[in-house]
């Protein structure tokens, strides 16, 4: 059990850093999707089964589709975008910085010896659907507003430009 958690958490971090570091934007989007998939394994093992499904379908699926749509809409024939910016040089220090920060956090955790909480048992009597529909009305209302917002965003932002001659 714990091994799976460690492995999927590690993969999530590695794919996430890959998404940040990767030169090609398409591969970065795929890295993000893989990171998301690792997270959904992690969520499943931690007992959040419904959230794991959502993570896989919404974050790993839908968000990647959105990014790929963005990439294909911004395709430039000369592929000059790739040459123009030099992310690679600026992101080269990131793994070093991350390893440094990680070591620092580990040393802090080892020296401070804080009392850490344990993972509790998954309570059997709670159902996500009951909690969501019974207790979280405000969130549902917020989700409705968010989705309306997203609809307007697609309609307004992705539209071709010819209608807007001032």
């Amino acid at each position: 059990m714990n091994t799976i958690i460690y492995i999927s958490a590690g993969l999530m971090l590695i794919f996430g850093v890959y998404a940040v570091m990767e030169h090609s934007i398409l591969r970065a989007a795929i890295g993000l999707a893989l990171s998301s998939a690792s997270l959904s394994v992690l969520l499943y093992v931690l007992g959040a089964h419904l959230a794991a499904v959502f993570e896989l379908s919404v974050c790993s699926g839908l968000v990647t589709v959105i990014f790929i749509a963005g990439i294909s809409l911004s395709h430039s024939p000369k592929m000059e975008i790739q040459k123009e910016y030099r992310d690679k040089e600026r992101n080269r220090q990131l793994p070093l910085v991350l390893i440094g920060a990680g070591l620092l956090l580990v040393i802090l955790a080892l020296t401070l010896q804080l009392q850490t909480p344990q993972l509790g048992e998954v309570a059997a009597d709670q159902d996500v659907r009951d909690v969501l529909w019974g207790n979280r009305q405000a969130d549902i209302w917020g989700q409705i507003a968010l989705i309306l917002c997203g609809g307007v965003a697609v309609a307004v932002l992705f539209r071709e430009e010819r209608r807007e001659k001032k």
Binding site: A145, C149, V152, V156
Partner: peptide, 24 residues
């Protein structure tokens, strides 16, 4: 509830981004 506060804050923010960007 603090989490609902976050959700509606996100709604507010997203509307603002679109409203600024929509004149393009």
């Amino acid at each position: 509830d603090l989490f609902s506060l976050y959700v509606f804050m996100e709604v507010t923010g997203l509307c603002c981004f679109i409203m600024i960007a929509m004149f393009r």
